[in-house]
């Protein structure tokens, strides 16, 4: 089951001397919901997602996923939390081109284990099949862009994450793949019961979201759905 998100008095700046870049007095997201994060380029969507992923210290305010307060966790604890709880899908796929599709999906397993046990391997194969990736042993560099993003989604789902973060996952895809990949990601999040926060410009994703958040000038506000088709 996904985790609920609570943010309180979050103020974040790139360095101590710079002005506040993100200011979020309070935010609540229900567990298992789909949240569309919208905003113009440079508004700070990626930075916000990385903070939600615990990839930086939070000197002021709190970000709490379920009962885990990221702002009180050490660097090492946040690493472990990401491994156990989080899946991340990137705009530019972020695959390792020299590894196969299957190896890319299984890569996070090697962060803790020397060899990959049978269970994650069969789950990786099942996810790749479910997402329509046929060439599982082909080098990632030889895959089409649509296949690459499917592999990236499979990787994010491998550990049955409670939290899924996606940073404009369809921005690098053509229209046909954009529809398909968006649908696959939303379905997968629902099936896994994960809370999904997805930065997107895609109207249909926005329409299917349980909650729309708009980021502008470092401030977060509730946004409206657009009425697009998915």
């Amino acid at each position: 089951m996904g985790h609920a998100l609570t943010i309180e008095n979050l103020e974040w700046r790139f360095s101590a001397n710079e002005p506040v870049f993100l200011r979020i007095p309070s935010l609540s997201v229900s567990a298992g919901s789909i949240v569309a994060l919208v905003g113009s380029s440079g508004a700070g969507k990626s930075t916000f997602l990385f903070l939600l992923a615990g990839m930086d210290r939070i000197p002021q305010g709190r970000i709490v996923w379920g009962d885990r307060d990221l702002s009180r966790m050490t660097d090492k604890e946040r690493d472990a939390w990401r491994r156990q709880t989080l899946g991340f899908v990137f705009q530019d796929f972020q695959l390792v081109p020299e590894l196969s599709a299957l190896e890319n999906v299984l890569l996070p397993v090697t962060f803790e284990r020397w060899s990959v046990p049978a269970n994650p391997r069969s789950r990786a194969l099942e996810l790749l099949t479910r997402l329509g990736v046929k060439r599982v042993f082909a080098r990632a560099s030889s895959l089409s862009r649509g296949e690459m993003q499917r592999v990236s989604i499979a990787r994010s789902l491998l550990g049955r994450p409670s939290v899924l973060l996606a940073d404009e996952p369809t921005a690098s895809l053509d229209a046909a793949n954009e529809e398909t990949v968006s649908a696959l990601l939303l379905e997968a999040a629902k099936e896994e019961g994960a809370t999904l926060v997805i930065a997107t410009h895609h109207g249909a994703v926005r329409d299917r979201a349980d909650q729309v958040l708009e980021l502008s000038h470092g401030m977060l506000s509730e946004g409206a759905k657009q009425g697009g088709a998915l």
Binding site: F50, A53, M55, D79, A80, Q84, L86, F111
Partner: peptide
């Protein structure tokens, strides 16, 4: 840096 960031975002620790 890109793959260091990628690995960290996927949960790799600094030791890895």
């Amino acid at each position: 840096y890109r793959w260091i960031g990628l690995l960290r975002s996927l949960g790799a620790g600094r030791l890895y």
